[in-house]
Design a protein around this nucleic acid. Sequence first.
DNA 1: GGTAGACCTGGACGC
DNA 2: GCGTCCAGGTCTACC
Length: 308
Amino acid sequence: MNLTLSARLPFSFLSVVNSHGWVQLSPFRFDKETETLSYIFRLESGRVVELRLRSAAGGVRVEVAGALSAAECGEVKRAVAWMLGLDMDFSEFYALARDELKLAQAEKKAQGRVLRSPTFFEDVVKTILTTNTLWGATKRMTANLVTQFGEPLPTLNRSPDAEHTEAKGADEGRRAFPTPQRLAGTTEAVLRAETRLGYRAPYVHQLAVRAASGELDLETFKHSDLQTLELRKQLMKIKGIGAYASANLLMLLGRYDFLTIDTWAFKIVSHEWYGSQPIGPAEVEARFEKWGKWKGLAYWFWDWSYKG
DNA sequence: GGTAGACCTGGACGC
DNA sequence: GCGTCCAGGTCTACC
């Protein structure tokens, strides 16, 4: 079944896909040859399907193996619209960016949207897994979670392309991101020792338990009316979510008032303005203060001199 | 409110 | 192959 969804323009499918590292985290997968983004999606009914997304005129084309009911079709549309931020409006940011050489490409490249997971639970877990570790370990921990606790994609729901890939021995079987219920049903000890989450295990387990019990409804964060500062406070009540992680989650929610300041930020900002001398958060903040509620985007899409 | 130390893993390095 | 060091954010205890 194929669907075509339109986006608020300007829109670039590849800009969203390449906006940050999420595309490298399971159950996302990107094929550079065909420029196809694959995501293993668990429908509310429990059915697991593969979404294959490609650029289309004015939006995105969604391919799903097999037929979908009207309700499932609506669910897929809502999920993809959220994942790619199809309705998001960055005209105010672009108007400001036109006067800044380092952001001159932002509008032309349709930058601003960042790739998101269908559920906020998945994005919170993945964000916890980015803290205090190297990117390679984040990818490994996420893959372990999906492999050990995700529901498998049935063979009949795999696209012909995916089967071809498996035939080449490059695909060991795909799974959806685990539900809160599934993770709540395991133990901290298993998450620590077998999934190799280390000290993050109790954070992820507690989050799953709270989400599964209904005590914490993470989906309400997506459309919250709270001021960003209050929303940040709510996020930081989640164990394992500190200043950096909350800023990352706020950006995923379309709030850009806080900077995702990590050790990489110190490196690139220092190289840009402070002669590579040691700096702290205050120096990073000072350089982006003038961007106000768009500071997070200005920082994220800045054309940095330091390329690593 | 600010600070120090602990948390845990995997990669880099020296022997 | 083994041991040691280090990077990476957040939490907790303490001041």
